[in-house]
Simulated scan of single mutants.
Amino acid sequence: MAWYDRHGRHDLPWQAGDAEGRRDPYRVWLAEVMLQQTQVATVIAYFQRFVAALPSLRQLAEAEEDHVLALWSGLGYYRRARFLQRAARVCVERHGGELPRDFTALAALPGIGRSTAGAILAQAHGLRFPILDGNVKRVLARHRGIHGHPGQSAVARELWRHADACTPAERVADYTQAIMDLGATVCTRARPACARCPLAEDCIARRDGLTAMLPTARPRQALPTRRTVMLVLRDPSGRILLERRPPQGVWPGLWSLPETADHAQAWPAAQAHARLDDATALTPFEHVFTHYRLHVEPLLFDGVQAHPGVTDRTDLRWSTSGELATLGLPAPVRQLLQTLEPPAPTTIFPRDLTR
């Protein structure tokens, strides 16, 4: 705590309190969900944009899913955003539009769980509950010399036991931030700054030269590569054809580009949506998921004429560049569309003027 008072982070946007110093549970919750799998430096801008658009739990519950996903676009792990909105709606239906202060009820909400519930109650209400996010796991595994991958149930139980034993009865909100900050800024995954660590004196990993080996890494497996061809269909006015992805699988429920397994299927698939002339191969790219690499080969079909009835389907839409900014798109798809050259202007021949 003495280290945190001097070196910790005290001005994060979700730490702001009211006149009596009480933090908004909604903002604390939103930050905790965003910080799952994502670093603070990345989260801050997304958090500020999100709360500016949806400043309350009720507004989140009432928002269109596409709006929520658009605000989330780029953070990845989109299931977090869906759970966030689903939990907000449960709070409106069952908890008077507020996050419950009861631990069991809070941890039961979609996407929260034990550690996030503890972090919310500790930081928003000062209640004594331990947390165990990735940073805390690393600090405790090294300090107490705990071997084994933290995903294993026996190792997780041991880490929770130490997390609870270390959590103080007072200044719980500060302690919760302190141990997360320690893991994020000092006890880092690579090259930890042990000389600056307030726990260095009795750290088992430092004493035994184990900082590079603890916490024990997940057994590595070679990532397989999957391939897909993305179809970029653009009409003369510059609109792009988007297809909503199914609720299961990669990027569930987001708007993306139509896809085929290979080039042989690309032409008939594109023709099913529009009349077209030729395709231009765009620069291939790879996107890495947790369990595999996705190799993407984009094909641009420019100046296409949409078939009647295409937009009668709820899973297809022609979108302008302005509309793309309001939709939930996978980050690599958004980046791909942002790199497109503007469509060439339509040439009007003299014979067209007599029509």
Rank of each mutant, 00 (worst) to 15 (best):
R161K: 14
A87C: 00
D174K: 04
R171D: 14
V90G: 03
P150T: 11
R80A: 08
D174W: 07
H95K: 07
R101W: 02
L127D: 13
T167P: 00
Q85C: 07
L132N: 07
R86H: 09
G96C: 05
V155W: 01
F129Q: 12
A107Q: 15
Q123S: 08
I146D: 02
L99Y: 02
H143Y: 14
R101N: 02
G126S: 12
C166F: 13
C166N: 02
H149M: 01
R138Q: 09
G126R: 11
A87W: 00
G134E: 03
C91P: 04
R161C: 07
W160Q: 10
P110W: 12
Q152A: 13
A81H: 07
G96I: 08
Q177H: 14
V90Q: 15
R86A: 15
Q177P: 00
L127R: 13
G96D: 01
E170T: 14
A81W: 06
T176N: 14
A141F: 03
R142C: 08
P130K: 06
P150E: 11
F103M: 08
A173M: 02
H149D: 14
V92Q: 14
R144F: 15
P100W: 00
N135A: 10
R128K: 13
Q85T: 06
L99P: 02
Y175Q: 09
L106G: 05
R144P: 00
P150M: 10
S115A: 14
R171Y: 00
A108N: 05
I120F: 01
I131L: 11
A107D: 04
R157I: 01
R128P: 05
A124M: 07
R82H: 14
W160E: 12
G97A: 11
G96R: 08
G113A: 06
G134T: 03
D102N: 11
P100N: 05
G111Y: 08
H95C: 06
A169H: 10
G113Y: 04
A81I: 09
L159Q: 01
E98Q: 13
G148P: 08
E98T: 08
A108V: 04
R80E: 08
R157A: 15
L99Q: 05
F103D: 07
A154W: 05
H149I: 03
A122S: 15
R79W: 00
F83C: 08
G118N: 05
A173E: 09
Q152F: 00
R144L: 12
A87R: 00
L140R: 06
E93N: 06
A124C: 07
R86E: 15
Y175H: 14
G134Y: 01
T167Q: 10
R114Q: 15
H95F: 15
P150I: 10
A169S: 13
I112P: 04
A141K: 05
G134W: 02
R161G: 09
Y175C: 01
R144I: 06
Q152I: 02
A173T: 01
R157G: 03
A108P: 06
R89F: 02
T104R: 11
R80V: 06
V136D: 03
E158A: 14
A156P: 00
H162E: 12
Q85V: 11
R89N: 02
D164W: 10
P150V: 07
L109F: 10
K137G: 10
K137L: 04
D164T: 14
E93L: 09
H147G: 11
L132W: 05
R114N: 11
I120A: 07
E93Y: 01
P100S: 04
